[in-house]
Design a protein around this nucleic acid. Structure first.
Length: 220
DNA sequence: GACCAGGCACATC
DNA sequence: GATGTGCATGGT
Protein backbone atom coordinates (compact mmCIF):
# COMPACT_ATOMS: atom_id res chain seq x y z
CA UNK A 1 0.00 0.00 0.00
CA UNK A 2 1.45 3.41 -0.94
CA UNK A 3 1.50 6.08 1.72
CA UNK A 4 -1.29 7.95 -0.07
CA UNK A 5 -3.41 4.81 -0.03
CA UNK A 6 -2.60 4.31 3.63
CA UNK A 7 -3.66 7.89 4.41
CA UNK A 8 -6.98 7.32 2.65
CA UNK A 9 -7.38 3.97 4.40
CA UNK A 10 -6.85 5.68 7.75
CA UNK A 11 -9.51 8.25 6.97
CA UNK A 12 -12.03 5.64 5.83
CA UNK A 13 -11.32 3.33 8.77
CA UNK A 14 -11.67 6.09 11.32
CA UNK A 15 -14.82 7.41 9.68
CA UNK A 16 -16.32 3.91 9.68
CA UNK A 17 -15.48 3.55 13.37
CA UNK A 18 -16.45 6.97 14.67
CA UNK A 19 -18.76 8.47 12.04
CA UNK A 20 -19.03 12.22 11.45
CA UNK A 21 -17.51 14.22 14.30
CA UNK A 22 -19.06 17.50 13.10
CA UNK A 23 -16.33 19.73 14.48
CA UNK A 24 -15.37 22.26 15.84
CA UNK A 25 -17.24 22.11 19.18
CA UNK A 26 -18.17 25.82 19.17
CA UNK A 27 -21.32 27.81 18.47
CA UNK A 28 -19.72 30.22 15.98
CA UNK A 29 -16.51 31.25 14.29
CA UNK A 30 -15.43 33.64 17.02
CA UNK A 31 -15.72 30.91 19.62
CA UNK A 32 -13.52 28.74 17.39
CA UNK A 33 -10.86 31.46 17.42
CA UNK A 34 -10.92 31.76 21.20
CA UNK A 35 -10.88 27.98 21.60
CA UNK A 36 -7.96 27.64 19.18
CA UNK A 37 -5.75 29.73 21.47
CA UNK A 38 -7.03 28.18 24.69
CA UNK A 39 -6.49 24.59 23.55
CA UNK A 40 -2.78 25.06 22.81
CA UNK A 41 -1.10 22.08 24.46
CA UNK A 42 -4.18 21.70 26.65
CA UNK A 43 -6.95 19.17 27.23
CA UNK A 44 -10.25 20.36 25.72
CA UNK A 45 -12.12 19.68 28.99
CA UNK A 46 -10.13 22.47 30.59
CA UNK A 47 -10.81 24.75 27.64
CA UNK A 48 -14.55 24.19 28.07
CA UNK A 49 -14.39 25.48 31.63
CA UNK A 50 -12.59 28.63 30.48
CA UNK A 51 -15.09 29.25 27.67
CA UNK A 52 -17.94 28.75 30.09
CA UNK A 53 -16.41 31.38 32.37
CA UNK A 54 -16.21 33.83 29.47
CA UNK A 55 -19.84 33.22 28.57
CA UNK A 56 -21.00 33.53 32.17
CA UNK A 57 -19.13 36.84 32.40
CA UNK A 58 -20.93 37.88 29.18
CA UNK A 59 -17.73 38.88 27.37
CA UNK A 60 -17.73 36.38 24.48
CA UNK A 61 -17.62 38.98 21.69
CA UNK A 62 -14.59 40.50 19.94
CA UNK A 63 -15.33 43.99 21.25
CA UNK A 64 -16.01 42.99 24.85
CA UNK A 65 -12.97 40.73 25.06
CA UNK A 66 -10.85 43.42 23.47
CA UNK A 67 -11.92 45.92 26.11
CA UNK A 68 -11.48 43.53 29.03
CA UNK A 69 -8.28 44.18 31.03
CA UNK A 70 -5.71 41.47 30.44
CA UNK A 71 -5.58 40.56 34.13
CA UNK A 72 -9.33 39.93 34.24
CA UNK A 73 -9.17 37.90 31.04
CA UNK A 74 -6.36 35.79 32.52
CA UNK A 75 -8.43 35.10 35.62
CA UNK A 76 -11.44 33.98 33.57
CA UNK A 77 -9.42 31.59 31.43
CA UNK A 78 -7.41 30.22 34.34
CA UNK A 79 -8.81 26.65 34.09
CA UNK A 80 -7.30 26.31 30.60
CA UNK A 81 -3.77 26.61 32.01
CA UNK A 82 -0.94 28.88 30.79
CA UNK A 83 -3.48 31.58 31.54
CA UNK A 84 -1.11 34.55 31.54
CA UNK A 85 0.47 33.72 28.22
CA UNK A 86 -2.87 32.78 26.66
CA UNK A 87 -4.45 36.03 27.83
CA UNK A 88 -1.64 37.90 26.07
CA UNK A 89 -2.05 35.79 22.92
CA UNK A 90 -5.82 36.32 22.87
CA UNK A 91 -5.23 40.05 23.29
CA UNK A 92 -2.84 40.06 20.32
CA UNK A 93 -5.41 38.30 18.17
CA UNK A 94 -8.20 40.61 19.32
CA UNK A 95 -6.04 43.65 18.58
CA UNK A 96 -5.58 42.36 15.05
CA UNK A 97 -9.31 41.73 14.61
CA UNK A 98 -10.66 44.92 16.10
CA UNK A 99 -8.04 47.30 14.74
CA UNK A 100 -8.06 45.96 11.16
CA UNK A 101 -11.49 44.43 10.78
CA UNK A 102 -13.92 46.40 12.85
CA UNK A 103 -16.68 45.03 10.65
CA UNK A 104 -16.03 41.70 12.32
CA UNK A 105 -15.79 38.11 11.20
CA UNK A 106 -17.51 38.76 7.89
CA UNK A 107 -14.90 41.22 6.68
CA UNK A 108 -12.14 38.77 7.58
CA UNK A 109 -14.01 36.12 5.59
CA UNK A 110 -13.41 38.16 2.45
CA UNK A 111 -9.64 37.63 2.63
CA UNK A 112 -8.03 35.16 0.24
CA UNK A 113 -6.51 32.05 1.85
CA UNK A 114 -2.89 33.18 1.54
CA UNK A 115 -3.53 36.57 3.09
CA UNK A 116 -5.63 35.22 5.93
CA UNK A 117 -2.92 32.71 6.82
CA UNK A 118 -0.17 35.31 6.54
CA UNK A 119 -1.98 37.76 8.79
CA UNK A 120 -2.86 35.11 11.36
CA UNK A 121 0.75 33.91 11.53
CA UNK A 122 1.91 37.48 12.01
CA UNK A 123 0.01 37.58 15.31
CA UNK A 124 2.34 36.73 18.20
CA UNK A 125 1.05 33.54 19.76
CA UNK A 126 -0.48 32.13 16.59
CA UNK A 127 1.60 29.34 15.08
CA UNK A 128 0.86 27.03 12.14
CA UNK A 129 -1.62 24.76 13.91
CA UNK A 130 -3.59 27.58 15.51
CA UNK A 131 -3.68 29.49 12.22
CA UNK A 132 -4.83 26.46 10.25
CA UNK A 133 -7.45 25.52 12.86
CA UNK A 134 -8.90 29.01 12.54
CA UNK A 135 -8.69 28.85 8.73
CA UNK A 136 -10.50 25.51 8.58
CA UNK A 137 -12.98 25.65 11.43
CA UNK A 138 -13.78 29.36 11.68
CA UNK A 139 -13.45 30.40 8.03
CA UNK A 140 -14.21 27.18 6.14
CA UNK A 141 -10.98 26.98 4.15
CA UNK A 142 -10.04 23.47 2.91
CA UNK A 143 -6.74 23.20 4.78
CA UNK A 144 -5.65 20.14 6.73
CA UNK A 145 -4.74 20.82 10.36
CA UNK A 146 -1.74 18.96 11.74
CA UNK A 147 -1.46 18.45 15.47
CA UNK A 148 0.45 16.33 17.99
CA UNK A 149 -1.98 13.45 17.47
CA UNK A 150 -1.47 13.54 13.70
CA UNK A 151 2.29 13.27 14.07
CA UNK A 152 1.90 10.43 16.55
CA UNK A 153 -0.63 8.41 14.52
CA UNK A 154 1.32 8.83 11.28
CA UNK A 155 4.57 8.04 13.08
CA UNK A 156 3.15 4.86 14.58
CA UNK A 157 2.03 3.78 11.14
CA UNK A 158 5.45 4.59 9.70
CA UNK A 159 4.15 7.23 7.29
CA UNK A 160 6.58 9.85 8.56
CA UNK A 161 9.82 9.84 10.48
CA UNK A 162 10.28 11.48 13.83
CA UNK A 163 11.83 14.57 12.27
CA UNK A 164 8.95 15.40 9.92
CA UNK A 165 7.89 19.00 10.35
CA UNK A 166 4.44 20.55 10.24
CA UNK A 167 4.49 21.42 6.56
CA UNK A 168 5.72 17.99 5.46
CA UNK A 169 2.93 16.22 7.33
CA UNK A 170 0.36 18.66 5.97
CA UNK A 171 1.62 18.12 2.43
CA UNK A 172 1.45 14.36 2.85
CA UNK A 173 -2.28 14.59 3.58
CA UNK A 174 -3.09 17.33 1.08
CA UNK A 175 -1.35 15.42 -1.70
CA UNK A 176 -3.13 12.18 -0.75
CA UNK A 177 -6.62 13.61 -0.46
CA UNK A 178 -7.81 16.38 -2.79
CA UNK A 179 -8.69 19.60 -0.93
CA UNK A 180 -12.15 19.10 0.49
CA UNK A 181 -13.58 21.16 3.33
CA UNK A 182 -15.77 18.42 4.73
CA UNK A 183 -13.12 15.68 4.56
CA UNK A 184 -10.30 17.79 6.03
CA UNK A 185 -12.64 18.91 8.76
CA UNK A 186 -13.64 15.34 9.63
CA UNK A 187 -10.19 13.84 9.21
CA UNK A 188 -8.54 16.09 11.77
CA UNK A 189 -11.37 15.48 14.23
CA UNK A 190 -11.19 11.71 13.67
CA UNK A 191 -7.44 11.68 14.31
CA UNK A 192 -8.01 13.50 17.59
CA UNK A 193 -10.59 10.85 18.48
CA UNK A 194 -8.29 7.88 17.81
CA UNK A 195 -5.51 9.77 19.59
CA UNK A 196 -7.60 10.20 22.71
CA UNK A 197 -8.84 6.61 22.71
CA UNK A 198 -5.95 4.55 21.42
CA UNK A 199 -2.91 6.24 19.93
CA UNK A 200 -1.50 7.57 23.19
CA UNK A 201 2.10 7.78 24.39
CA UNK A 202 1.23 4.48 26.10
CA UNK A 203 -0.92 3.15 23.31
CA UNK A 204 -3.93 0.88 23.56
CA UNK A 205 -3.68 -0.67 20.11
CA UNK A 206 -6.09 -3.48 20.85
CA UNK A 207 -9.49 -2.54 19.42
CA UNK A 208 -8.05 0.44 17.58
CA UNK A 209 -9.81 1.10 14.22
CA UNK A 210 -6.32 1.20 12.64
CA UNK A 211 -5.15 -2.09 14.12
CA UNK A 212 -5.30 -3.74 10.66
CA UNK A 213 -2.65 -1.37 9.28
CA UNK A 214 1.08 -1.88 9.81
CA UNK A 215 2.23 -0.10 12.94
CA UNK A 216 4.99 -0.10 15.47
CA UNK A 217 5.17 0.98 19.07
CA UNK A 218 8.45 2.31 20.34
CA UNK A 219 10.01 0.51 23.28
CA UNK A 220 9.90 2.50 26.49
C1' DG B 1 2.66 11.18 42.46
C1' DA B 2 3.72 10.76 37.63
C1' DC B 3 1.98 11.38 33.28
C1' DC B 4 -0.61 13.66 29.82
C1' DA B 5 -3.22 17.25 27.22
C1' DG B 6 -6.08 19.56 20.03
C1' DG B 7 1.55 24.90 20.86
C1' DC B 8 4.28 28.70 20.76
C1' DA B 9 8.04 32.01 21.52
C1' DC B 10 12.39 32.70 23.02
C1' DA B 11 17.25 31.70 24.71
C1' DT B 12 21.24 29.37 23.84
C1' DC B 13 24.60 26.76 21.51
C1' DG C 1 19.59 25.83 12.01
C1' DA C 2 18.77 22.61 15.75
C1' DT C 3 17.73 21.86 20.46
C1' DG C 4 16.04 23.01 25.15
C1' DT C 5 12.93 25.42 28.22
C1' DG C 6 9.03 28.09 30.32
C1' DC C 7 4.32 28.52 30.46
C1' DA C 8 -0.08 25.86 34.33
C1' DT C 9 -4.48 23.75 35.18
C1' DG C 10 -7.05 19.54 35.82
C1' DG C 11 -8.10 14.55 34.64
C1' DT C 12 -6.39 9.71 34.83
Amino acid sequence: MSSSETIRNIYLSLHAAYGNRDWWPAVDGFEVIVGAILTQNTNWKNVEKAIKNLKTADVMTPIKLHELPREQLAELIRPAGYYNIKAARLKNLLDWMVENYSAGMESISALPDWQLREELLAVKGVGPETADSIMLYAFNRPIFVVDAYTARVFGRHMLIDEYADYHQIQELVQSSIEPDLKIYNEFHALIVEVGKNHCKPRPKCQGCPLEHLPHQVEEV
